[in-house]
Each structure stands twice: as C-alpha cells, then as structure tokens.
Amino acid sequence: MTVYLDLIWLLNLGIDFLLIIGTALLLKRKKNYVRMGAAAFFASLVVFFMFTPYVSIFMNPIVKFIYSCFIVFIAFGYIRFTFFLQNLAGFFFLTFVTGGGLFAMHYFFQTDVDLMAHLPGHGLGGSTISWAFVLIGFPLVFWFSKQQVDTFKIKKVHASEMATVKIEIEDFTFETRGLVDTGNQLKDPLTRAPVMIIEAHLLHPLLGKQQTDDMLNLDTKENHPFMHRIRLVPYKAVGQKQPYLTAFKPDQVTIYYGDEQFVTKRVLLGLYGEALSSEGEYQTIIHPQLVISQVS
C-alpha cells in the first residue's frame, strides 16, 4: 500500500487551520493569523508521529489533551485561566461537532468515501472524491454548526427576558407570554403611562374580531361599550400607515418576571394586528419600566 504522507499532512494542516479560525469566529476572538498558522502547523505534526514507534504515546487521551492545550496556547495565548479554558472548550466543541457532522454526512449519503482519506487502490493519500468530501463538507458543517450556536444564543437571551403576563379587564382575565424589551420606550404622552404591545387577537374573546379590527383601523364607533378604555398613542413604525397606535386600558396587569411579581394599574395595551414572534414564543412586548419598579 502506498502512503502519501505529504498529502495527509497537508490535508490535516488545512483542517487544523480551519478549526482554529472557526474557534476564533465562534468565540469572537481577535485573529492573529501568524499565531494561528503556527498553531495549525504544530497540530499537524502529529501526523508524522503516527508513523513512528511513539504512536502509542500520542494515542493516549492525556497526551492528546495536553497537546491540544499547546495548540490553543499557541493560537490564542494566555491572558487568564478562564480565557484559556473558554478557548480550549471552544476548540474541543468545534472539533467534535464538525467531526461528528462529517461522519453524519458520510453515513447519510451512504458514500464509500473514507473520512481518513483512504480508498482501496488509492493509497493513504486519498482520492479526489475523498478530498472533495472533506474540503467541501467541512466548511458546510462548520457553517451549519455556527448558525445553530447563534440561534441557541438568541433563544437563551430571549428565554432570560421572558415573563408571564396576567391581564385583567372587568371579569375577563387571561395570561400570555411576554418579552421584556429595553428598546420599547413607548408611553402615553398625556398620562406618561407605559405602553405594553400585545397581539390584538388576545382581546377577541372580550371584544370580538370585528370590534377589535375596528379599533386597529381607528374606526371605533362612539357607542362602543369600551370606548372609555380606548386611547390613541402617537406611534411610528416601518410599514405602518396610521400615525397612531390604538391602546386599551386594562384594570390591572400582573407580570411574573424571574422570581418577582409586578402589579400595576397604570399601563396601556397597545394593539398590534400581526404576530410579534414568528415562532410564537411570546405575544406581548413588555415596557422595561414595568419590571423595574412597581408602577402604581
């Protein structure tokens, strides 16, 4: 069997460099390409040790871990222990995810490509198919992994800002999920009461769809049974035709945020005709003032 050691080393050098660059992108680290190139070169040297009598030493998990520590140290340096530990964890995470992703692609497509770049009759240098599979599949798996990590981060932030909202209007009471949005600074210009945006359909059981739609279109009749609760708040948003937002005055709003409970009567419900979250995670946008202190 012919072994193309130079090709194996070159392939590993490229993958190691991509893993280090990927770690920097994942953790948003400053990229020093000289250090990263040196780290990738150091990482790729393990290929040569695999063909020496010392191969058993480098197959030891402890030695692999120490070797990885040196790779991360060369690539990112050492500022403090937590910084180094984050870099090491990010490097391991990306390595396992991309490696597992390549194996998953391999079995999903039922290819005969060996991920170790070995095909019978082609030696250990690999064929064009095996190289293409790794070089094309690796960036695809990395891109997919990064997109999923970013999505999880966003969901985690949203989850930490979620609250349960209980709204009371006469005998009508309902609960919904709300997102505390620091960017929402909307207030009633007359009373300075905070405005909490809610999806209009939440009031259908109380008002009915037609009356709710009339309120959204600023076409409310004077004999409307809840006319005394309706307010118009100056509001401008992209794609909105009217310069005002229809708001509704509840009797009381209770917000369960974290381990605290906030009760207020001084609040308006701004009606929004569409879904606030495309995935249905929340139906209200909570004014931050409502969870900072009791608004009486």
Rank of each mutant, 00 (worst) to 15 (best):
T182H: 01
Q242T: 15
A24M: 04
D114L: 10
A132V: 14
E279G: 03
P120T: 08
M162P: 13
Q261F: 04
R231S: 11
L190A: 12
Q289F: 03
A39T: 09
M162E: 15
A75F: 04
L5F: 07
E161M: 13
D150L: 13
V149Y: 09
E279F: 00
V47K: 00
M36Q: 06
W131Y: 14
I79Y: 04
A24T: 04
F81S: 13
T246E: 08
P61I: 05
S277E: 05
L207K: 00
T264S: 06
T182V: 05
S56V: 09
G280C: 03
V238M: 12
D171A: 06
Q242H: 15
L27K: 01
M162C: 11
K155M: 11
V97H: 01
L119A: 15
P194E: 11
V238S: 10
V97N: 03
F92E: 08
T98R: 03
T176S: 12
S68H: 05
I292H: 10
N32W: 06
S145Y: 03
I66F: 11
A75P: 03
F58V: 15
V195N: 08
K64G: 07
A117E: 09
F152M: 13
L190K: 10
I167T: 06
L190W: 04
S127F: 08
L5C: 13
L119Q: 09
N217Y: 12
R266N: 14
T191N: 11
K249Y: 14
S127A: 10
H201Y: 06
G100R: 00
I129E: 12
N60E: 09
L94E: 08
V63L: 07
L271T: 03
F83L: 10
P205V: 08
W143F: 14
L135F: 11
Y282G: 01
M196V: 08
V195Y: 01
H118W: 14
Q211K: 01
A132G: 14
T128A: 15
F49E: 02
L190F: 09
N184W: 00
M196S: 04
F65D: 06
I286N: 07
F144Y: 14
L232N: 04
N12F: 01
F109A: 14
L186E: 02
M215H: 06
K156P: 13
L140P: 04
S68M: 11
F49W: 07
T212W: 00
Q294W: 01
